[in-house]
Design a protein around this nucleic acid. Structure first.
Length: 433
RNA sequence: GGAGGGGUUCCCGAGUGGCCAAAGGGAUCAGACUGUAAAUCUGACGCGAAAGCUUCGGUGGUUCGAAUCCACCUCCCUCCA
């Protein structure tokens, strides 16, 4: 793919929010295999889907023949990025951040090709930051930054201006650290482009300025739009919390379901953002869906593509197996092996000891994680929204869970598939007793 | 160090002695309608099956009774030094 084609494609996908050095970037990219980077700070032990767009962006550049560097912020993660954050953040201990950095290092490496002709690299900014002494930092780097300019940055403005908030020197310095990353990567790897979310604009332009001042280099910046949903609620969160990329934190099944539940108003946009399907193909899907009566196909395609990207073919199959069984078939008709497989595939499940049952059904289901509180279960019960093996549970039986989980009612004598509401399932398996 | 302002249930934000488990909005959950979509409508929304129990930065105090008053402590913000 030629570079102008790459840029055109990115624009067509809506992935380009702002470009620093716009008039020269196409020419620069056309000049050969270029090096670019994107940073990921360790703020948890896994990235979440908010980082997916930049990760895939690195891949898009790599596929076009360029060399991506994925930077894990072993150093910046110790400081905390204040950009557009409402409040000062709690610092994590160095050993925790180091542990998270290792995890991200592995995770990030899966989305880019670390081998091949233009192998990607994972770098850690702690490598060039940890031995930097304060005086050198202040004299050689800090001298290039104007406080007047820094406090003008939109990303920290509200923290500076808004009554009731504030910003520590530590967080304020974050921008300098990130800028230094860019200039170091320019020096070490001839890295000429930094990409990031639109909230990173201030940090990126800071790096561009510093690279010019320290090394006379002309480098570029590109930001991606903030991902928004048509209904205005926050992208990437559900009732059960953040959607993580780590399969042990968000199962492939839950991950798949998340995408499957995308609203019509967002699905084609997300296909452009989160998949490698061509824009033309996506438009075709959209047209076909528009012409069709009833349920569109976009969500299923989105869920399939993204789950495969993140969890591989195997994870996708597991997710589809569960989805198929729960939503498109009669789950109680499944064989014992199938049910066991579903639990292995990531369907929420737990053991049920009929000898040691809690006093109420609400307790039992809350403990199993099906609801946040007994009140919610009670509400669902009263509306007939709790089904055990397909049979609605009478709210009056709340005090008698043993009769709800009757051996006779168990599938294959030992399985109870509980459904709460339209979408939440949990498989209980009788303890071998 | 001085002066002033503030810390309310997930978030924003009312509440300034009883009528407060605490307005309103958002988020979230459940139901109806649908397509595991959106919009809309309904119900729930501190915990508990219930009796009841625990909340309004912390600790003590005043009072029959405090989120509301007093003292001290703590954290945050603004201005001054």
């Amino acid at each position: 793919m030629s570079s102008s084609a790459l840029l055109d494609d990115l624009r067509a996908r809506g992935l380009v929010f702002q470009i620093a050095g716009e008039d020269a970037i196409a020419e620069w990219l056309d000049g050969g295999s270029r090096t670019l980077y994107c940073g990921f700070d360790p703020t948890a032990d896994s990235l979440h889907i908010g980082s997916l767009v930049p990760l895939l962006m690195l891949r898009r550049f790599q596929d076009a023949g360029h060399r991506p560097l994925a930077l894990v912020g072993g150093a910046t993660g110790l400081i905390g990025d204040p950009s557009f954050k409402a409040a000062e953040r709690q610092l994590n201990t160095p050993d925790i951040v180091a542990g998270w950095t290792d995890k991200l290092r592995q995770q990030v490496g899966r989305f880019i090709d670390l081998g091949g002709e233009n192998p990607a690299l994972v770098v850690n900014n702690l490598d060039w930051t940890q031995n930097l002494d304060v005086l050198t930092f202040l004299r050689d780097i800090g001298k290039h930054f104007s406080i007047n300019a820094m406090i003008q940055k939109e990303s920290v403005k509200q923290r500076i201006e808004r009554e009731g908030s504030g910003i520590s020197f530590t967080e304020f310095t974050y921008m300098i650290l990130q800028s230094f990353d860019f200039s170091e990567l320019y020096k070490l790897y001839d890295c000429g482009l930094q990409i990031g979310g639109s909230d990173q604009w201030g940090n990126i332009t800071g790096g561009i300025d510093l690279t010019r001042r320290m090394h006379g280099g002309h480098v570029f910046g590109l930001t991606m739009p903030l991902i928004t949903k048509a209904d205005g609620t926050k992208f990437g969160k559900t009732e059960s919390g953040t959607i993580w990329l780590d399969g042990s934190k968000t199962s492939p099944y839950a991950f798949y379901q998340f995408w499957l539940n995308t609203s019509d108003a967002d699905v084609y946009k997300f296909l452009r953002y989160f998949t490698f399907l061509s824009v033309a193909d996506i438009e075709q899907i959209e047209q076909a869906d528009a012409a069709r009566d009833g349920r569109p196909e976009g969500q299923a395609i989105l869920a399939r593509e993204v789950t495969r990207l993140v969890h591989g073919e195997e994870g996708l199959l597991a997710a589809q197996r569960i989805t198929e069984a729960l939503f498109n078939g009669d789950a109680t008709a499944l064989s014992a092996d199938d049910l066991e497989q579903l639990a292995l595939d990531g369907l929420p499940s737990s053991k049920l000891d009929r000898e040691a049952m809690p006093e109420t059904l609400t307790q039992l289901l809350t403990e199993a994680g099906m609801a946040a509180s007994g009140k919610q279960v009670k509400d669902a019960l009263s509306r007939g929204a709790v089904l055990i093996n397909g049979q609605p549970v009478d709210a009056a039986l709340n005090g008698d869970p043993a009769s709800c989980f009757h051996n006779n009612a168990a599938v294959h004598g030992r399985f109870w598939l509980v459904r709460l509401g339209k979408k939440k399932y949990h498989l209980f398996t009788r303890t071998a007793a």
